[in-house]
Amino acid sequence: MKNNMHFSNGKNKMHNNKDITDKQYIYAVARIRSKELTLFGKSDIEQLISCSTEMECLRILTDKGWGKDGSHTSEQILTSEREKTWELLKELVEDISVFNTFLYGNDYHNLKAAIKQVYRGTKGHNLYMSNCTLDPEVIIKAVSEHDFSLLPEYMRDIAEEAYQIQLRTGDSQLCDIVLDKAALDSIYAYGKESGNELISQYVELKVAAANINIAIRSVKTNKDEEFLKRALSECESLDINKLIECAIEGMEAIYDFLATTVYFEGVPALMESSQAFERWCDNLIINYIRPQKYNPFTLSPLAAYLLARENEIKTVRILLSGKRNDISDDIIRERLREMYV
């Protein structure tokens, strides 16, 4: 799939892009300014770290308004926080498709889940993610009836390919790779077409980071060139052909190559561990979006708030997981992301 593919019919795409580039979102940004006050800062995170148990953390989170009635476990609380963020954004923008960049990943996850369920002959809806551009029921129907015309045009061919791979070869990993690459391609192409600088830069970082992670993992698991060609997505800031060559040579070649790119500052983190590199990427995105705290117009502060909330939820998840597994405070602190506020 090429990066310059088109997602929807021209009319919708133009309408959405016009919304993204022309609208000032004055009301929405003003509300987000107030909402930013409730985002966790360093002191809130330190307060959570100082808790001795996960339960104590959950109590503090509940006191701070996290979760909904009936959400008791950490996962329930985190899920409800993500839901709250999307409910707010749906309230603030007339057309939620301006955030499609952040939703396409969930569509492809749902497609993956549906194909796996059909292959295994199982049923259940707990595998599917909400907040996506396509109703999961449509995806389930398309896969179970093998009628991909129900899906949007940009998804049909790739859904058919992944379906055939899974059902004919039973190779779940290959099926995942095909869909993961398609998801990255979709996110990248929509982000670049959006005309919004923040979203465009976000997708650039996201795809480049994903490519680097895939290359590193493929070296560790001795994957061949064919695998890399199927898995890596094109992006402007990283020459994937060069990355593939380096991945075949080994880890040192990847480090040397990255040292010549705009991601050179991430090399020490990459040498440390893939988790450290992931943290470096997350921090890079947060540092990039931070100036949006002072931008009173456009979609960018809203997108920044969404990314800040995702970052906050991820940070709290890491923290809760650390507390659950009795990991020392210092190690938990090392794993945490920088906060937006």
Binding site: I26, V29, A30, R31
Partner: peptide
């Protein structure tokens, strides 16, 4: 009107 729209956004929260 621009000020009013922004103001309404703030008042909705506080």
């Amino acid at each position: 009107s621009m000020g009013g729209i922004a103001g309404a956004g703030v008042i909705a929260e506080d």
